[in-house]
Design a protein around this nucleic acid. Structure first.
Length: 653
DNA sequence: TTAGGGTTAG
């Protein structure tokens, strides 16, 4: 044999030496010239190098691909996120009577998981059992991952009937081969329980999301326990399942079990568990993981870093988030977005926007998620011009189809006072979710369009969207602003009785405000007293304000007593009480309250308000006379108050 | 074969 041919054969047998596309192509050329029968061996090299186009071209030249060729092309499709093509190949391979081996199933199962083709995945599972690969650790891990994700996407029945899935099925002439026989294998029995629970909508509908998650994970756990061999990936997959179903104790327990099995947590383990640590605001556990990460050389891992940024931010330790962020030698889009979100969620809106500008200057291209934190920052700061600039960027980069972005734009325009643009964005949305509707309802409510808000709420219900507690806050706010007592009571009862939503602080506050404004002071008092907990000052203050309007001193005193019980430092309550005494001519009592306030209470932090005129923001603090146009402003206010008083007297007549 | 960030609250 020629020396060149020998070299090529050696290279093909030890493909690990071929590390680049150009090397692979050179060998390909030599094979075509000197060893054409070896062409198919090259496919595994292209596949290992993840060269999809080259793999497809070569695969298409093969007349009767071997199991190795099928394995290579399926793996290459899956690793390049061509999941549908991967499944199509699998079905074609089965139709040709070729049995898959342990290298094929993990890729196929991953494709099923990514496409949410869970029914199809179950049939692949049947195939796994038929070829006796149920104890293969890679295949077992892929099954664990698929089953633990199948509940999170419980709409899988819809996806399984999608046109893409039908194409996969039609391409396979012999799909029935994939169907499993669930009576043949004890090990399969526990897998089958998982599938049963995933598919039984009548059982699932009666359970809360958390309960569904618990049941699902109990079954995934059973699958895990039947695996004869488990590696770090098996544990990581189980931990991720627990984390995604908010099962904190179980996730932590599984990490301990990993130690018992002499397996060390790796970067995946840490980053899988961090979201749940953030959710539970367990700063000590976060610090423990941070320390472990540093000790084991994971401090530059972007996944762990963004998880830790979230943990610190959720624990209101945004400075620690920032320190960690700054220590990252390479910051990707996710680390920037995590840090921006950390600022915005902690009320540091200007800082969030500053970081966003810095991110653009660092040539990090924003993705749709990047805007989900900066638009709310504009909304909170009511900076319409900046919000509009961002909107322009979003349109130019065609991100305006994203439901998160559009919902926050609706909210931003409404908060910045432009309800017309808010409606325009809302009406142009191709898809709307509960948050989009709620943002629009709240926008209408805060602009005084109570009727529109109620119509939207009912339209939303007609679109089969189940309102949550925030949506009820929005519609109750609308009723409250428009003095629609009966509608408000109807919505409140509907929320409790029909939707089984337990009223929260905000609902009670809305209802107390609504009843108080309508003069139903005793009803409002009774409602707040019926609150099971959290009867802090701010839920009582609207009622106290109503007592002032309706000059009910007796009830105001009772309300202040109640506030004293839960929130004895509430300066606002005493200021209001003093004003009530003043308004009914009890000047001595008013003066006593004021005196008591100045003696015993800490000074209230002065409130700040601001207005943007053109490019300039004018800020005002209570008692501050420093504005250059102070006198003009006071004169204008006097004129306005005069008009209000006149209108009020006409209404009373 | 396993992993990240987001929208609505008088």
């Amino acid at each position: 044999m020629e020396p060149l041919q020998t070299t090529i054969k050696t290279l093909i047998n030890t493909p690990i030496q071929i590390k680049s596309k150009s090397q692979a192509k050179q060998i390909h050329a030599q094979i075509i010239k000197t060893l054409p029968t070896f062409t198919s061996n090259l496919l595994s090299i292209y596949s290992k190098l993840n060269l999809l186009q080259e793999s497809i071209t070569l695969f298409n030249t093969l007349h009767s691909p071997s199991i190795h060729n099928w394995k290579s092309i399926i793996k290459c499709y899956t690793s390049n996120a061509y999941f549908l093509e991967s499944l199509n190949c699998f079905v074609k391979m089965r139709a040709m009577g070729i049995y898959p081996d342990h290298n094929v199933f993990p890729s196929v199962l991953k494709s099923c998981t990514q496409l949410m083709f869970f029914k199809f995945g179950e049939s692949v599972h049947g195939s796994v059992i038929r070829v006796g690969l149920e104890f293969d650790v890679f295949t077992g891990n892929a099954l664990l991952s698929m089953y633990s994700k199948s509940l999170r996407f419980s709409a899988h029945q819809v996806f399984d009937e999608s046109p893409e899935r039908k194409t996969v099925v039609q391409n396979g002439q012999n799909e029935r081969v994939l169907k499993h026989d669930n009576n043949t294998n004890n090990n399969f029995k526990s897998y089958n329980e998982v599938s049963y629970n995933c598919r039984n909508p009548s059982t699932l509908n009666q359970m809360s999301n958390q309960d569904q998650g618990n049941v699902q994970m109990q079954n995934v756990r059973k699958v895990f326990e039947t695996m004869p061999e488990r590696d770090v990936v098996s544990y990581n997959t189980l931990i991720l399942g627990y984390a995604q179903n908010s099962m904190y104790d179980e996730a932590m327990m599984t990490i301990r079990e990993m130690g018992d099995a002499k397996l060390k947590p790796d970067a995946f383990t840490l980053s899988n568990v961090l979201p749940i640590v953030a959710e539970y605001m367990d700063v000590w556990k976060g610090k423990e993981i941070h320390g472990y990460g540093i000790r084991h050389g994971f401090e530059r891992n972007g996944f762990i870093a963004s998880g830790l940024i979230d943990v610190y931010a959720n624990c209101k330790m945004v400075e620690d988030s920032y320190r960690l962020f700054c220590s990252l030698p390479e910051k990707d889009c996710v680390s920037w977005c995590s840090m921006i979100a950390a600022c915005v969620q902690n009320g540091l809106f200007d800082e969030g926007l500053r970081l966003f500008r810095q991110m653009l200057r660092a040539n990090i291209k924003p993705v749709p998620i990047s805007f989900s934190s900066v638009i709310p920052a504009c909304a909170h700061l009511t900076t319409l011009p900046l919000g509009q600039q961002l909107h322009g960027y979003i349109i130019r980069h065609r991100f305006d189809d994203n439901v998160f972005i559009s919902s926050s734009l609706v909210n931003m325009y409404a908060k910045c006072g432009n309800i017309k643009l808010a409606k325009c964005v809302f009406n142009r949305m191709k898809q709307r979710d509960l948050v989009s509707w709620t943002a629009m309802i709240m926008g209408c409510a805060s602009h005084g369009y109570a009727h529109d808000a109620i119509v939207l709420f009912k339209q939303m219900e007609m679109e089969d969207l189940r309102p949550n507690s925030v949506a009820f806050v929005a519609v109750l706010t609308a009723c409250s602003h428009a003095g629609m007592v009966n509608d408000g009571l109807t919505f409140f009862n509907q929320m409790v009785k029909h939707y089984k939503i337990t009223p929260e602080f905000e609902h009670y506050a809305c209802m107390a405000d609504l009843l108080g404004r309508a003069g139903k002071l005793d009803d409002a008092f009774g409602l707040i007293c019926s609150m099971p907990e959290n009867k802090t000052g701010s839920v009582w203050l609207p009622l106290l304000a109503a007592c002032r309007v309706h000059k009910n001193v007796e009830l105001a005193e009772k309300v202040v007593e109640q506030i004293n019980e839960f929130d004895s430092d509430n300066v606002g309550a005493y200021v209001l009480l003093s004003n009530i005494y003043f308004s009914v001519g009890r000047y001595k009592d008013a003066a006593n309250v004021r005196r008591m306030l100045s003696k015993n209470m800490n000074k209230k932090e002065p409130a700040c308000s601001w207005i943007r005129i053109g490019e300039k923001v004018h800020a005002f603090i209570a008692g501050d006379e420093s504005h250059p146009n102070y006198d003009c402003i006071i004169n204008a206010l006097d004129i306005l108050f005069g008009h209000i008083e006149k209108e009020y007297l006409i209404t009373c007549e």
